[in-house]
Deep mutational scan, measured.
Amino acid sequence: AQFIESYVCRMCSRGDEDDKLLLCDGCDDNYHIFCLLPPLPEIPKGVWRCPKCVM
């Protein structure tokens, strides 16, 4: 059997509050909206890229 790795935030390495986890459309990394600098108030609509992919 294969275990699917749960999504974890690249900043805090936690997978809780998954309703606040953002998936980068560039590299598929995950980030909590409140772990980003600056934090986001809510999940953005449409395409989102993490700080690494925006640079």
Score class of each variant (00 low, 15 high):
1 A>E: 08
1 A>S: 06
1 A>R: 02
1 A>W: 06
2 Q>K: 15
2 Q>M: 09
2 Q>T: 15
2 Q>A: 06
2 Q>G: 04
2 Q>P: 08
2 Q>R: 06
3 F>G: 12
3 F>L: 12
3 F>S: 13
3 F>I: 07
3 F>A: 09
3 F>T: 11
4 I>T: 15
4 I>G: 05
5 E>N: 15
5 E>L: 04
5 E>S: 09
5 E>R: 13
6 S>M: 15
6 S>H: 05
6 S>E: 10
6 S>R: 12
6 S>Q: 04
6 S>P: 10
6 S>Y: 10
6 S>N: 15
7 Y>S: 14
7 Y>A: 15
7 Y>M: 13
7 Y>N: 15
7 Y>T: 15
7 Y>W: 06
7 Y>D: 15
7 Y>Q: 11
8 V>T: 11
8 V>N: 13
8 V>A: 10
8 V>R: 10
8 V>W: 06
8 V>S: 12
8 V>K: 15
8 V>Q: 09
9 C>W: 00
9 C>V: 01
9 C>L: 00
9 C>D: 01
9 C>A: 01
9 C>K: 00
9 C>P: 00
9 C>G: 02
9 C>S: 01
10 R>S: 05
10 R>F: 03
10 R>E: 10
10 R>D: 04
10 R>K: 14
10 R>N: 11
10 R>H: 15
11 M>L: 06
11 M>R: 13
11 M>G: 10
11 M>A: 10
11 M>I: 09
11 M>P: 02
11 M>E: 15
11 M>V: 09
12 C>Q: 02
12 C>R: 03
12 C>A: 00
12 C>P: 03
12 C>H: 01
13 S>P: 09
13 S>C: 07
13 S>D: 11
13 S>L: 13
13 S>T: 11
15 G>L: 09
15 G>Q: 09
15 G>Y: 12
15 G>D: 11
15 G>E: 13
15 G>R: 13
15 G>F: 12
15 G>A: 11
15 G>P: 13
16 D>Q: 08
16 D>M: 14
16 D>V: 12
17 E>Q: 10
17 E>T: 14
17 E>A: 14
17 E>S: 11
17 E>D: 13
17 E>I: 11
18 D>S: 13
18 D>W: 13
18 D>A: 14
18 D>K: 15
18 D>T: 10
18 D>C: 07
18 D>V: 13
18 D>H: 15
18 D>F: 14
18 D>Y: 05
18 D>L: 13
19 D>I: 07
19 D>V: 09
19 D>K: 13
19 D>R: 11
19 D>E: 10
19 D>N: 13
19 D>M: 06
20 K>Y: 11
20 K>Q: 10
20 K>G: 02
20 K>F: 08
20 K>C: 04
20 K>R: 08
21 L>S: 03
21 L>M: 07
21 L>Q: 05
21 L>C: 05
21 L>Y: 05
21 L>E: 03
22 L>W: 01
22 L>P: 01
22 L>N: 04
22 L>I: 15
22 L>M: 13
22 L>H: 02
22 L>E: 03
22 L>G: 00
22 L>T: 13
22 L>R: 07
22 L>A: 06
23 L>F: 04
23 L>M: 15
23 L>N: 14
23 L>P: 12
23 L>A: 13
23 L>V: 14
24 C>Q: 08
24 C>R: 03
25 D>L: 04
25 D>G: 10
25 D>N: 05
25 D>M: 04
25 D>K: 07
26 G>V: 07
26 G>H: 14
26 G>N: 09
26 G>F: 11
26 G>D: 11
26 G>Q: 09
26 G>I: 07
27 C>P: 03
27 C>L: 01
27 C>E: 00
27 C>D: 02
27 C>W: 00
27 C>G: 01
28 D>M: 04
28 D>Y: 02
28 D>E: 09
28 D>N: 13
28 D>A: 14
29 D>R: 12
29 D>Y: 13
29 D>W: 02
29 D>M: 06
29 D>T: 10
31 Y>P: 01
31 Y>K: 02
31 Y>F: 08
31 Y>L: 03
31 Y>S: 00
31 Y>I: 06
31 Y>N: 02
31 Y>R: 02
32 H>Y: 00
32 H>Q: 02
32 H>M: 00
32 H>A: 02
32 H>C: 02
32 H>V: 02
32 H>I: 01
33 I>G: 15
33 I>L: 03
34 F>M: 08
34 F>N: 14
34 F>P: 05
34 F>L: 08
34 F>W: 10
34 F>S: 12
35 C>M: 00
35 C>S: 03
35 C>T: 01
35 C>Y: 01
35 C>Q: 00
35 C>H: 06
35 C>L: 01
36 L>H: 12
36 L>K: 02
36 L>M: 05
36 L>A: 07
37 L>A: 12
37 L>M: 13
37 L>W: 15
37 L>Y: 05
37 L>R: 14
37 L>P: 10
37 L>S: 12
37 L>F: 07
38 P>L: 06
38 P>S: 07
38 P>A: 11
38 P>W: 03
38 P>H: 09
38 P>T: 05
38 P>V: 10
38 P>D: 05
39 P>D: 06
39 P>K: 14
39 P>F: 02
39 P>R: 08
39 P>A: 12
39 P>C: 06
39 P>H: 01
39 P>E: 12
39 P>G: 07
40 L>S: 04
40 L>T: 08
41 P>L: 14
41 P>R: 14
41 P>A: 09
41 P>Q: 11
42 E>Y: 09
42 E>T: 13
42 E>L: 04
42 E>P: 02
42 E>R: 10
43 I>R: 12
43 I>L: 14
43 I>V: 08
43 I>P: 05
43 I>T: 03
43 I>H: 08
43 I>D: 04
45 K>R: 10
45 K>A: 07
45 K>C: 08
45 K>G: 12
45 K>F: 03
45 K>L: 07
45 K>Q: 05
46 G>N: 04
46 G>P: 04
46 G>R: 10
46 G>S: 07
46 G>K: 04
46 G>F: 05
47 V>S: 13
47 V>M: 08
47 V>Y: 11
47 V>G: 11
47 V>C: 07
48 W>I: 08
48 W>P: 04
48 W>G: 02
48 W>A: 03
48 W>C: 00
48 W>D: 02
49 R>T: 11
49 R>W: 10
49 R>A: 06
49 R>M: 10
49 R>G: 04
49 R>E: 07
49 R>N: 15
50 C>K: 00
50 C>V: 00
50 C>F: 04
50 C>W: 01
51 P>F: 11
51 P>L: 02
51 P>E: 09
51 P>C: 04
51 P>Q: 08
51 P>R: 06
51 P>G: 03
51 P>Y: 05
52 K>I: 12
52 K>A: 12
52 K>P: 13
52 K>H: 07
52 K>S: 07
53 C>M: 02
53 C>V: 01
53 C>L: 00
53 C>A: 01
53 C>H: 00
53 C>Q: 00
54 V>C: 10
54 V>W: 01
54 V>H: 12
54 V>M: 08
54 V>Y: 10
55 M>R: 09
55 M>V: 12
55 M>A: 11
55 M>S: 15
